[in-house]
Design a protein around this nucleic acid. Structure first.
Lengths: 204, 204
DNA sequence: CTCCAACTCTACACAACGTCGATTTTTTTC
DNA sequence: GAAAAAAATCGACGTTGTGTAGAGTTGGAG
């Protein structure tokens, strides 16, 4: 595996391999959309990136590693965008903002996120990545619930447990909707937002 | 190619093959728990059932077919039990009863149901089976919501769409909880019940 | 007994994975 | 700007797991 040392000097020395690596990940994302994880072979991946199978194994140890790297890249992008959103806001607004952001993310990276979810059971690394991401959402939802007056605490009817269930609801609902269309995603978002608000006691 | 399950049900006596078939499915369920779908090979399956790979292919055309049959068997059992539960009841009671039944199902068949969910994307037959099952739940939830006063209709904030989201919430929450323990399942159930009731406007 | 269907096995062909060592290309160093 | 080092590429190989083919075995009905 090539070392990933960041900026060394004023001259950004981008190796040829870095290009290839990105090409492989891009190909992977494309293929995931076109044929899905199972049908995608290492040969396809290599061909898409313009190299042979042998060469691909210089960059990644396995098909799983490629996908893991792709998930990592996507998830990182996701974190960045999440950080950007202000959290200290009136609860109702916060919910709306969060849902809009979520729609954007799924619109953009639906297939990769679906794959990540599918593989998080069988590929421990991806499971790690995804559960970490989920935790971020869960703590965010928890914060909103508590600010809206839901009691904090470890019991099943208190904020953290509810946030967890709501997170899974959103994940799963978007998972399905993103297979259909952008419109479905919007509707799904409205529904989830409504349930979230109701659970928080913010009924209109 | 030998004809498959079409005319078998008419037989009076139980053939040796029916035993084998069941043995294969039982083995499949065991292996699913022990090693998971990917790690389970057709050889393992055959060995567990006391036959060779070749013989197994007499009964099932592929590994996927075996799992599909197992899912079908499990799901059928699930339908039977669901039918048994009375539907015409006071909403609050209906919710509690439904959740208790769901806990039982996951306690009993957690691994198979998790596998069904995982494969419903890649194996169309399983997807069919599972989405049909989900529809049963969704209509049941819809009925409860409407009886509790939630408006009927196709809009994202009306009963059917909400029922769908709640169904996915329950599915996903139980999916995760059933990997942990029976206790987690119970807690998950309480949380889901609470959110369901709140969404229905049945706040205590 | 014999015949047919149900059942079982071994052997084979194939596809995809991951490894290896040799070789070529790119980058660094002097 | 050439030699040395590192990075990148290739093609061939061994392995594993899948699904198929065809031959052989059992057991019950006529």
């Amino acid at each position: 595996m090539p070392a990933h040392h960041s900026a060394r000097s004023r001259r950004a020395t981008e190796r040829k391999g870095d290009l290839r690596e990105r090409a492989i990940l891009d190909t992977c994302e494309t293929l995931l959309v076109q044929k899905g994880y199972d049908a995608m072979t290492v040969g396809d991946l290599a061909q898409g990136a313009g190299i042979t199978r042998g060469a691909l194994y210089f960059y990644f140890g396995s098909k799983q590693e490629v996908v893991t790297a792709l998930v990592a890249r996507t998830v990182e992008h996701l974190w960045e965008r999440s950080r950007a959103t202000a959290e200290a806001d009136e609860p109702r607004r916060a919910v709306t903002a969060a849902m809009r952001r979520t729609v954007e993310l799924w619109d953009e990276h639906g297939p990769v996120m679906r794959t990540a979810i599918d593989l998080s059971l069988t590929v421990p690394e991806i499971g790690e990545l995804w559960s970490h991401t989920a935790d971020l959402f869960i703590t965010a939802i928890t914060a909103v619930l508590e600010r809206a007056g839901v009691q904090a605490g470890p019991e099943p009817e208190q904020a953290p447990a509810m946030a967890r269930a709501l997170c899974w609801m959103i994940e799963r609902t978007f998972y399905h909707a993103s297979q259909e269309s952008h419109e479905e995603l919007q509707k799904a978002s409205s529904t989830c937002e409504h349930i979230w608000l109701t659970s928080a006691g913010l009924t209109a």
